[in-house]
Design a protein around this nucleic acid. Sequence first.
DNA 1: CATGAATGAGCGTTCATTCAT
DNA 2: CATGAATGAACGCTCATTCAT
Lengths: 203, 203, 203, 203
Amino acid sequence: MNLTTRQQEIIWSAIHLIDEKGIQGLTIKNLSARMGFTEAAIYRHFKSKINILSAIIDLFKAQTAQIINEKEHSDDHSLIQLKNIFSHYSTIFSKDPAIVSVIFAEEIFQNEDSLSARLTEIIETNELFLGRLVQSGQKNGELRNDIDPSLAATNLLGSFRLIVKKWKLNGFRYSLKDETERLTEYFATILSPLKDKTNQEQA
Amino acid sequence: MNLTTRQQEIIWSAIHLIDEKGIQGLTIKNLSARMGFTEAAIYRHFKSKINILSAIIDLFKAQTAQIINEKEHSDDHSLIQLKNIFSHYSTIFSKDPAIVSVIFAEEIFQNEDSLSARLTEIIETNELFLGRLVQSGQKNGELRNDIDPSLAATNLLGSFRLIVKKWKLNGFRYSLKDETERLTEYFATILSPLKDKTNQEQA
Amino acid sequence: MNLTTRQQEIIWSAIHLIDEKGIQGLTIKNLSARMGFTEAAIYRHFKSKINILSAIIDLFKAQTAQIINEKEHSDDHSLIQLKNIFSHYSTIFSKDPAIVSVIFAEEIFQNEDSLSARLTEIIETNELFLGRLVQSGQKNGELRNDIDPSLAATNLLGSFRLIVKKWKLNGFRYSLKDETERLTEYFATILSPLKDKTNQEQA
Amino acid sequence: MNLTTRQQEIIWSAIHLIDEKGIQGLTIKNLSARMGFTEAAIYRHFKSKINILSAIIDLFKAQTAQIINEKEHSDDHSLIQLKNIFSHYSTIFSKDPAIVSVIFAEEIFQNEDSLSARLTEIIETNELFLGRLVQSGQKNGELRNDIDPSLAATNLLGSFRLIVKKWKLNGFRYSLKDETERLTEYFATILSPLKDKTNQEQA
DNA sequence: CATGAATGAGCGTTCATTCAT
DNA sequence: CATGAATGAACGCTCATTCAT
């Protein structure tokens, strides 16, 4: 909380290290080399390595909370909001793809219970928010109401996570924003109420 | 390929170690301790640690290929087949939950390009198969045809991955098979053709 | 010599650190934390860590010299003087038990020849003074004269050191002054001339 | 307990390191250098550094127990026994003076409670044994009975410890055995019953 | 088929100390 | 008079791996 400039630099170096070499590549030596100073100097800014990881999670948690808070009280249609939130995340990830190597890789933190619990919360926060979105969409008749909102939330989040993960596994070579748009249109199709469209599409 | 009994024991010990302590817990020392013999003895059976990880991936790859091959030429309806394949995986995972800590954690292998590429293939193989399933379902009129089969496949696989991951993050406390059933019923709902049901559900 | 207030504060913090955590606990970091300012600030007051240890020894040396000087020209009987000097030390130690962790632990300074030599001198100074006391007591007929004064001095000092060390090992839980009194009475008994008491006591 | 040859070698290297450079000189690096192999190799033989210190204490404890056990049931006169036991210790110390740098330096172990407690026991064991010796000597009329046996024990042990410590501080330059003999004769003088000697000595 | 002993590199961390501000 | 940031060396310890037996 309230990180110094140096602390922020270190955190982002750590995120990029994890992105490039995995959690095993996040060593104090690698980190200090990337920062351009000695290993000992790291300890001026963070008490320990797990403090660094903890700060990374804090960062993502705050970011998630802020994004959700922004959208929470919007008046937009549910489908627009869904589109917006995934679009928002894909913008963030596109700006610095390294983030996804950390935020979607719970395994990284599994050694430290205190950390993994907090990362799990981030998933849950997102899922719960998506669930609320679906539910209110159903109330307004914007979304089909023959489905369980929480399952729909899992469905939305799971799909988004997979396209992001594939994007990463492919070396961020294509546009995540385009993929996200395709996905949200797909969601619009499958989650829309079952109006008279039926006959047309069946053709 | 053609692993000895000892090699298989070692591989499963390794999988369980990863499950329990993460990739950082997979050390030759831990592994040999779990096997009940010395570190040097491990090297009788595998040339190096990477070879062990490689064998793990081979195992999962072979397993995936076999599962898909089994189902590929089935005459069952697409939705039944979808149900069957997820049910099959959830049975395997329930029997030994440690598997999911490895198979869904691509990060683990990201250090070694040779390994991570092969793990990515497993995802793709599954996704392609699901895509073919959806496509044939659309041809037979069992599935709605206003959606892109490959997006539907991402949707199916992503959702399943997320319920499995959540199951793990919750310490395998509840039944994955039940969750999988709920998910496949959800899929049945959203992927079914938009027959005359329309009006009824809208009520 | 001629220490500033701050220097004295630092020295006493150092003594207490050694008392609590041993010489390995006397680090600049610990010391500055205890003083409530930064590590760098320590170096305003002392050129180096060795200088701090050196000042501690100077302190004890001066203290010892002063105590002995005070008593040296007393007219009291030798046994009274012995009692007085041990009582004096036990008062000092009781006021701040941390002292004994330093003054009786020559090992602490053994790395630096310059320091250990000076600490040894303190022992010798005390022992020589006790020797002179015994000798003058023998001259006056107050102490038995069938013993070597310097051996008696070793005997006196060694015994006192051991009761102090035991007091420390027991966590300063009981009264050192009481123990010292018991010890000096014991000395009175064994060092007194062998008058006609003989027969009585033998009974 | 039941140390291998290598473990014994390491322990004795450690004892000599402590003797030469103090506890701060006992580093794994120094130790392995003295042993002629790498730091990592030490850990084949001891789980940790404090295990090494623990083994050293075990060694001294066993040695003390054995010495006391040997003498405990002797029929010799108390003064002879006192002489014997101090002589025995001074022989051991003379053979390898490094021992005294460890056995009489409780400060060394003060960081680890488990260790310091066990070292304290060694002092106590010796003191209690000396106390029993004095008491039985008093019963037999060999020792004066106007003194408290436990105070006498403190007196004996404290004095012996001081001559040993002085011997060390003087770089083991003179004969400890001679000094010990002088001390035990002194003890014989002050602890003997107050027979008719009185008048003679008083002359 | 397995062990015991060893290695060299690297781990996270702490040390006393310096220096510009 | 004190701080914040840094250093280089050392700390205890673990890593994957090798090799003679």
